[in-house]
Amino acid sequence: MMSPNLSYIDKIAAGDHNFRKKLISIIKQELPQEIELYEDHIQNGTFEQRAGIVHKIKHKVSLLGMDNGYALTAKYEENLRNGSLDGKENFDQILKRIITFIEEL
């Protein structure tokens, strides 16, 4: 599985340092909140609520250059919508990698 990186953010920022910084700031602010909400939904929520928050996180997985992680997250989101937790372990591993990465930014 790929590790998170800033290559996609660098590509879309196209040398605009302020835009790059803003994107990173948004990820660092929103992602921990979304992960916390996901964990709350795992404990108390419906499959549909879980799928909704995984959908939001999926886009940040993509922004962090994890193409394979994006595919795994998309499959997990689909499984949740179908009432299955299949793929949860892979998704949890993706979250751990991302959390470590953004903490080091």
Results as ranks from 00 to 15, higher is better:
His41Thr: 14
Lys60His: 10
Phe47Trp: 02
Gly65Asp: 04
Asn68Pro: 02
Asp40Trp: 01
Leu63Phe: 09
Gly65Met: 04
Leu23Phe: 00
Thr73Met: 03
Met66Cys: 01
Leu23Met: 12
Thr73Gly: 14
Phe47Ser: 10
Lys21Gly: 08
Leu63Ser: 14
Glu30Phe: 04
Thr46Lys: 06
Ile26Phe: 07
Arg20Ser: 11
Leu31Gln: 00
Glu36Met: 12
Ile35Asn: 03
Gly52Arg: 15
Leu23Cys: 11
Ile26Val: 15
Met66Glu: 01
Thr73Phe: 03
Gly69Ile: 01
Thr73Asn: 08
Asp67Val: 07
Ile27His: 05
Gln49Asn: 13
Glu48Ala: 15
Gly45Glu: 02
Asp40Gln: 13
Asn44Thr: 09
Asn68Tyr: 06
Gln49Leu: 15
Thr46Val: 08
Gly65Ser: 05
Ile42Asp: 00
Glu30Ile: 10
Gly52Cys: 13
Glu48Thr: 14
Leu63Asn: 10
Leu63Lys: 09
Leu64His: 02
Ile53Trp: 01
Gly69Met: 00
Ser25Cys: 11
Ala71Glu: 13
Tyr38Asn: 07
Glu34Ser: 13
Leu63Gln: 09
Lys28Leu: 10
Pro32Gln: 00
Lys75Gly: 13
Ser62His: 15
Arg20Gly: 11
Phe47Lys: 07
His55Phe: 04
Gln29Phe: 13
Ala51Thr: 12
Lys75Thr: 14
Gly65Phe: 06
Arg20Ile: 03
Asn44Tyr: 04
Lys60Trp: 06
Gln29Cys: 09
Ala71Ser: 14
Arg50Asn: 12
Leu37Pro: 06
Ile24Gly: 02
Pro32Met: 01
Ile53Leu: 02
Ala71Asn: 11
Leu72Arg: 04
Lys28Ala: 10
Ala51Lys: 07
Lys75Trp: 05
Gly52Ser: 14
Asp67Met: 06
Lys60Val: 10
Ser25Asn: 13
Pro32Trp: 00
Lys21Glu: 11
Val54Ile: 14
Met66Asp: 05
Asp40Tyr: 08
Ser25Leu: 07
Ile42His: 06
Phe47Cys: 12
Lys56Ala: 13
Val54Trp: 00
Pro32Thr: 10
Glu34His: 12
Gln49His: 13
Arg20Pro: 09
Ile53Gln: 00
Ala51Val: 11
Lys58Tyr: 06
Glu34Phe: 12
Leu23Tyr: 03
Lys22His: 12
Lys21Tyr: 10
Val61Ser: 04
Leu37His: 08
Lys21Leu: 08
Leu63Trp: 01
Gln33Asn: 11
Glu36Phe: 08
Glu30Tyr: 05
Leu23Arg: 06
Ile57Met: 03
Lys75Phe: 05
Gln43Glu: 12
Thr46Phe: 03
Ala71Phe: 06
Arg50Gly: 08
His55Ala: 12
Leu31Asn: 03
Gly52Ala: 15
Leu23His: 01
Thr73Arg: 01
His59Glu: 07
Leu63Gly: 10
Tyr70Glu: 02
Arg50Ala: 11
Asn44Pro: 09
Gln49Lys: 15
His59Ala: 13
Gly65Gln: 02
His59Cys: 10
Lys28Val: 11
